[in-house]
Amino acid sequence: MTTQVALSNVGKTFPASPTTAALHALGPIDLELQRGEFFAVVGPSGCGKSTLLEIIAGLTPATQGSVEFEGRRIAGEAPDSIGVVFQEDASLPWLDVTENVAFGLRRSKLAKDERDARVRDALRLVGLSDFATSYPAQLSGGMRQRVCIARTLVMQPRLILLDEPFGALDQQTRLLMGDELLLMWRATGATVFLITHALDEATMLADRIGVMSARPGRLIDVVETNWPRERDSRIVERSEFGAITARLWKTLREESLKTIGRAVPKPAADA
């Protein structure tokens, strides 16, 4: 296994403004992601999980420490080989499914054949081949999220960052989407970095799970699941599944209490 992403001493402090005090939101965090692994992050709300993802994605700069992707430092803008999927529906309503997926390649200089082939493959992988000409408004929430995943896949990223991609979906759909995510992960060989607030989702999907503390978010535990690479949602039947989820909760319970125990309103920077 080789290291693909290396975070060292990464942290983020939002500077003070005339109306708010400075806010230490995240870190310091040291973490290495191995090429091809499935890493999940859980943590109490407001602990800076999304900020961490945005730092790796190059969407927001860290105020301390450094992030290296495949040996190169990420500063400001992330390379094309990192793909991001958000929780919110980011499908483009004026384009049909095929055009939405192809949108990921609009900037690229690929030949049309190659482009079409990639779009077709991505649609097949997320199970939307039959909906190629539908518009997002005609699709369910889960299907729209798959459109966004496919849009990321066509770029053939070597690292896929997912920020609570199934957060807005119902429980059954989430389990099934988890299965699809595992399929996609195996098919592409990409590294997956998943942020979730659902402990069972993290346990079911990941090779390793990072547990974050309340703000300022730090990694307080990294749990290995030791699942086989070939796996699906039926893994919830295993006895280890309960044990791992319980361990996560044990670590997280106190941290989550800290978050909800605060009576003061959250500072603006949290939003």
């Binding site: 969407l59 919110e88 529906d89 004026w94």
Partner: peptide
């Protein structure tokens, strides 16, 4: 324009003119 669409433009590394032409304008039509 929904902020998530602008974030998507950022993730896809669209330039400002591309963002206006491909995201902002069609979203506003």
């Amino acid at each position: 324009t929904r902020p998530i669409l602008l974030k998507t433009a950022h993730v896809l590394k669209l330039s400002r003119p591309q963002m206006v032409r491909w995201i902002l304008f069609p979203a506003a039509i």
